[in-house]
Structures are given as C-alpha cells and as structure tokens.
Simulated scan of single mutants.
Amino acid sequence: MRTLRQAEARCHTDLFSELKLSVPWGHIAAKAWGSLQGPPVLCLHGWLDNANSFDRLIPLLPQTFYYVAMDFGGHGLSSHHHPGFPYHQQDYVNEVLRVAAALKWKRFSLLGHSFGGTVGSMFSYIFPEMVDKLILLDSSPFFLDAPEMNNLLVYRRRRIEHVLQVEAKQQKPRNVVSPEDMLQSFLKNNFKVGEECGKLLLERGTTKVAEGVMLNRDRRLGLTENHIELVSKNQLEYFCMKMQARVLHIKATEGYVSYGRENQDEIRDSLQFVQRVLKSTLKERYQYVEVTGNHYVHMQEPQRVAGIISDFLESNRVVQAHL
C-alpha cells in the first residue's frame, strides 16, 4: 500500500495535508498535521463522523508530534467496503493496521472519540506491541454483553436484514437536498453536535452536486450497536491483561452516557465495571479524567481536553483533571 496523493491545504489557521492510501476495495482518506519526523498519533473518529472531528483539537496539541486522522471505510472521503456484507468493528481494526503499514509505523499512539475509541481499544489488545498510548475521548473501550444480552440476537438479525434492505434500495438515487436542509436533518439526528460543528463534519461528509449536496457515507451504516463487538466480563479481564499501552480515559460530564436511553442505569453500571477492571489491571498505566462538556466537547470546547492530552502525550506523569 502506498500514498497516492498528498496535497497541502489550509484548515482554519493551521496547515494540514490530505492523504489517500490505497486498499483492495479503494482507498482510505486521511488528514495529517504536525511534524513528519515526530512521534505518530493516529486519530479515530466516532460513528458516522469523519476526520474533520479533530480539526479544532489537533492544532491545540504539541506540533512536535505527527497526527493522522483517518476516515473509516464508508465514512467521510474513504471508499465504501465491498457490497454484500455488513460493517463490523473488527473491519475497522483491519483498517487501522493497513494505515499503520502504509505509513510504515511500527509503534504509535491512538486517539479515539466515541466508537473510534472502542476500535482503538480493540486494536490495542489484538496488536499490543504496536500501541504506545491510548487516549479515549468520551468512549468506552469495551461494551459488556450482560446488559445487552436480551438484544444480542436482535442486533445480529438486524445487521443482516439491514444489508439486504439497503441492496434492495440501491437502484434509487441518493437524496440531494440544499446545504441548509442537510444541516438541519443532521442536527436533528445529532443534536449534541451543535450547528458550527455540524457544518464542519458535513464539509467532509457530503458531496456538492448541481442541485445541492448528498451524503457520502455508506447506506449500510446503521445504528452503532449493529456493529460493535460485545464482550463478557471474563473476556474483558483477559483483554485488559494483554494491553501494553498507557491509557488516558477522558469522560465528559454530559457525554453519551447521559443521553436519554431507557437502560441508562445499566449502561452506567457497565461502564463503571469497565473502569474498575482497567484500573485494577493496568494500575498506574490507567488514568481517568472527567471534564465539563458533552459528547462533542473535543470539537465544541477543545481547550477543555487539549491540555490534558498534551500532558499525557509529552510525559509519563499522571495528569490532573481540568474542570
């Protein structure tokens, strides 16, 4: 796999480069900031987001590092996966390895928001020798099967049925709407993002056509729970034992756990169990910090997390909460 194109552009006031990495089903698109000679950091966006998720955060981090924010397959400017199959969490782990191979990285750090943090965690215990540091932005590194057991077969069935439904609709053209209508529709389904950050994500998440704009993302991408891998408590403990990375876990006070879910208490209990296992297993290699903000605090108020992340990247000392 080789880099086919690298063109410089300007994002707000900071220079970045666009990357296009060849894969068997097309390409993986990415953006890069910082020093090419610096320690590498791969940034993984959340479900249905894209690499623009990090546009406001990375310029506030030490530019002595080399940051690459990739678009997962089916998201942003990356190619869609081969037809006929659903997307799965491990598919994205595969993509992380392919990006690392293309960039000739043997060891690097991972910065993941939401679902990106879950993917980064999975990579960290499958390829532990490759990950130096893991930074989780309002993300759970694992999802326990216990609170979701009643839904497990529902998720598996829906994943298969959804692909077939999408294939049946492939003859229909994609919806083309005005930029304003697209933004309002996006905000309706992502009310925590906010208008300004919504526009930023749609810059990379849509394509302009003569009549307006249309979404880039693959129609097979549905609810996150159709694609995550649920683990048992025993698996969780075993996987944690395999992780070699230092882990910084940043939780937003009004993050995704506080969203209006029916099983909110079960989700909170599950996450607290995950945190206890991480702490007891990784010990001083695990650092947990809470910051004021919602699920998209890294975009809306990046200064709240930038100092914490910078300290973690640059030193081995325990970081302090910046509330």
Rank of each mutant, 00 (worst) to 15 (best):
L44N: 03
Y256D: 05
V213I: 11
L230I: 11
F186V: 02
F143Q: 02
L215P: 00
Q235G: 03
D269E: 14
P302W: 01
L42G: 01
D132G: 03
C43S: 05
H227R: 11
P83M: 05
G120P: 04
G212K: 08
D145E: 14
L230K: 14
Y256M: 06
G307S: 11
L200A: 07
Y67H: 07
N316L: 10
L236S: 03
V291F: 05
Q165W: 14
L223H: 15
D311S: 07
E167A: 01
P179C: 10
F108G: 01
Y67V: 01
G112L: 04
N175G: 04
H82S: 09
G117F: 01
A245K: 02
L152D: 14
S78H: 06
F127S: 11
F191S: 15
F54P: 00
R304Y: 13
H88N: 08
I126K: 04
I58H: 03
Q170D: 15
Q170L: 15
L278I: 08
R157M: 08
E225I: 05
V166R: 01
L134P: 02
S280P: 02
N294K: 04
E148H: 13
L183N: 12
V231W: 06
E314F: 13
S22A: 11
L61H: 02
Y288G: 02
E284H: 15
S232I: 13
E180A: 03
K283M: 06
F273C: 03
Y67W: 11
V318G: 01
K169L: 14
V247P: 00
R276M: 09
G84S: 05
I58Y: 05
L4C: 07
K279L: 11
S310L: 03
L103V: 12
R157D: 08
W105G: 00
Q37S: 07
L77Y: 12
Q63P: 02
L61W: 03
T13H: 06
T253S: 09
E229V: 13
P302E: 06
D265E: 13
N190F: 14
M241L: 08
L110H: 03
A69K: 00
P141H: 06
W105C: 02
D145Q: 12
F312C: 08
Q235A: 05
S140D: 10
V119D: 00
A7V: 15
D265I: 06
R174N: 07
L111V: 15
Y67Q: 04
